[in-house]
Every structure is written in C-alpha cells, then in structure tokens.
Design a binder for these strands. Sequence first.
RNA 1: GGCCCCAUCGUCUAGCGGUUAGGACGCCGGCCUCUCACGCCGGUAACACGGGUUCGAGUCCCGUUGGGGUCACCA
Length: 471
Amino acid sequence: MDTIITRFPPSPTGYLHIGGARTALFNWLYARHNGGKFILRIEDTDAARSTKESVDAIFDALQWLGIDYDEGPYYQSQRYDIYRAHVDQLIASGNAYYCTCSAQRIEEMRQAAKARGENPRYDGTCREKGLPASPDAVVRFKTPGAGNTILEDVIRGNIVFSNAEIDDFIIRRSDGSPMYNLAVVVDDITMGINTIIRGDDHISNTPRQILLYRALGASVPVFGHVPMVLGDDRARLSKRHGAMSVTAYRDMGYYPDALLNYLVRLGWSHGDQEFFTKEELVEKFSLKNVGKSAGVFNPEKLLALNARHIHNAPEEKLAVHLLPFLSEKGIDAREDEYLYRVIATLKARSKTFVEMADGAEFYYFAPKSYDEKGVKKFLQPENIKALEKLAGALREQEAFDEKSLEPVFQKIMEETGLGFGKIAQPLRLALVGKAVSPGIFEMIAVLGKDETISRIDQCIAAMSGKTGISA
RNA sequence: GGCCCCAUCGUCUAGCGGUUAGGACGCCGGCCUCUCACGCCGGUAACACGGGUUCGAGUCCCGUUGGGGUCACCA
C-alpha cells in the first residue's frame, strides 16, 4: 500500500472539544503507526460562524495534546479557486447544473413533502433545463437517482445506500462559495488523502461524497467511521455535560497523555490493557480493534487514569506541566533538581497538577500558620519537648538522606519512649503547618538540614508565644 | 417519520461456537502504615427480548425492543 495519508479537518466554530480531539487522535495515531502523513485542514467555508479565535484555540489544544501535523494547516477559505475549477469541471462533464429555484420555493416544497409524510428532497426542476450561470444560481450535483452506492467501511463493513434516497444537493452556493461535501472531497483528492477516519455521524454523508469522487474521476479513499462519544445521558456531547473543551482539562491539571489514553480507550482496545504511554499507543494502535458502539464519557475514569499517568511519568516530564500551576500560586520555581525531588515525593499522592501544586506549596514557603486541630493534638508541651530534642539531634546529623535519618529518629524514640507517630506528627505540623504531607523522611531529605531545623525552631517559638506566628 | 448505525456488569471494554463470561473505573470490605495517598487482597455487578441454525450459542441468521446518527445556499 502507498503511504497512509490521514487528516483532521475541524471547522473553527468553537473550541476543540473532547470528541474532536479523539477524531484527531485516531487519525494521528493511524498515520504515525504506519509511518504515514497527518494533515491539518481548517474547514472555514462557513464565513458567518468561523472565527480566528476558534482557529487559535484549536492550534493551542492540539499543541498541548502533542498532536503534531506534517502538512498544513490548510484553510478552505483560501482554496476557492480550486473548488470553483472542480465545480466547473462537474458542470462541463454534465454531472452538475445551475439551479435558480428560490430558497422560498424549496422551503415550500419541503413543507409540502413533510405534510404528505414524504421525505423532503429537491424535485429536480432545473435538472434538465441547461441553465446558464447567473448571479443568484446555485450549482447542484446530478445524482444517479437509481441503483445503490456502497460504503466499504473498514470498521463497520459494507453499508448500502439506495441512490433514490439521495437528491441533487447543492455543491456551490449562489455567492460562489463551495458547500461542505464538495469542499471536503476536492480537498481530500487534491491533498492525496487516502484514509478517512471520522465520527459515525458522517456516515450518511458518505454516499454523496463517494458519488462526487466518481464524478470527479478520482479513486475513493478508505473510510473508517468510529463510534461517537456520548454524555452520561447517552446524548450527543454538549456544554451541558460539563467541561468538554480540551483546554479545560489542561486548566484542571490533567496530563495530556492521560487524556489521550482515555480518549483512545473509548472505542479502541488492546486486550485487557488500560494504561498506555503515548509511545505505546503509536506502537499498538490499529483500526482493527476499534469498536462499533458509542461510548459514554466518564470523567471519573479519566481522573483515575490521570492519576496513574502522573504516578508513572518521570519527574522531568511532570515538571513542565506543573510549573504553570506553581507560578499561579506565586511560587517562583524553575526546572531544577530541587523541583524534581519535590515532584518525586508528590506524584503518588496527586491526581492532577492542581493537587500537586497544592501539595508542593510548603516546599517553597515555611508555614505561616499551624492547623488548629493539629496543634491541639500534636503540638502540646510534651511534643514540643520532643521537637526540641529532635532539633538538637538533627543539628548533629551530617548526612540528610532518608536512610541516614532513620537512626536519628530511632534514638529519639528510645530516649523519650514515644512511638514514631508521636514524633512524626508534631514534626509534620512544624514543617508543613498541616497534618497531611509526604513521608517524613523523604520530606526532610528534600527540605534539607537548614530549612528543616529552622522550621522546627520557628514552630517551637510560635508555640511558646515568642513570635507572631500562632495556631 | 424516511434512511443509516449500534446493543456483554452503572460506565469503558475482553470475548471472535464449548469460559466458573475476564480486566478497568466506581462502590463496599480488609491488609500495609508516621499523616494523606500509593500499593496489595477480596466482594458487588452484565451477555435487552423472541425466534431460528447447531450436539452446543454472549459469539452465526432473522425479527422485536431500546439507544444513537442524519435528513440545510452548517460542517
């Protein structure tokens, strides 16, 4: 087979949503898996609804997801000459004709058909008139009217459509701009696209497009219609289903690879495997294992998968995504060894980067207050005494790695007769200000000797009322 | 309504004629434990229905029901 060439053709009428991202992903994965090409094309022939902001939002989202393209972005609005030429070709070859039926007349026709319980369709009034071009004329495609058109879908098998169901649809508006079906087909032909993977909501369009391919003398590409993503009410995804834009997930602290992983598993499977890195996806993806039934978007499973990706990703990769959330909290962190060590202690306990940033705060700022409940429970006079002892011992301690720290605590436990928890919790309060944090040893190892001791001292001072800091 | 697609736990799915119907999320127990998590162990829960075909159907065929999509000078 020739080089696989796929494409993602969003129409810029809003943000890139979950469903669109999934379509892009399938095409991207298929191209990457097969060493093919992936093309981005902006379908902005609807001048009224297309916006520059939407175009930028789409680029932004794709970039964050790590879905890159080999060609484009092409803009349909800049290719009108090409469409015009193809429509003219269709007219010349007798496959299309001008039609001057008014929109009003068509509408009346539709109403009448509906009233009679029939299917609304163009009646072919202008079909054989041989009308010349005129300012208010549209161009219609001349449909066979009889016989069948078969869609050979790689995912669903053969789907047969009766040509009698397909009326002479408009391919060029009266203002000269191309209609969707014409533009996609011309683009896909001229861009060499040979594999079209898209949502199954496009199935009913396909026979029209196949007819167009033939009339244009082009070979029909491979089609694969993937099942759609539904909301929890089993209806088509929309705003009322909650956060549906890709960038919303970025802002909520999701890891792009996790979103990708979730989206692809919604409709595709590889045995029992649930967790895939992006590389694994490229390696294992195939159209053969794409299912046929629509799937319900489940935010909880996405969250769980996000947690797993965060747990498993190397610190360096996580750092890039965490940084924006840190700076949002006024933390001037940079990508360095310290950050990596911070992340190492946090990644098992963070489901999102928002959580991770929250958890990282104390590594950069000493506590400004101490959790009230925690103080009552763990910072009583006897605890302070233990903290003082501990601070003393730590001052003597040279090595500050986890392993070397343990014996120090052992010794304090023996001297005071306190259990580990009785020492760890007060210390945790002193270092973090809260009763929740990573493990004591790993935390101290990251904070370092000076900071650790200074925070203990600060806490002791606060508890004895010597500073402004209090519970 | 016409046309088209789909149908295994609540959800995502494995299954490709013979299985105690498997995994994941969620939920419920338990273990681990310096807090919170992670992790681990166990439990809950499904083949929409009716006909065929077959020695034998979740698996193949037909129908019913249910859900979805689509019927524009939108994409």
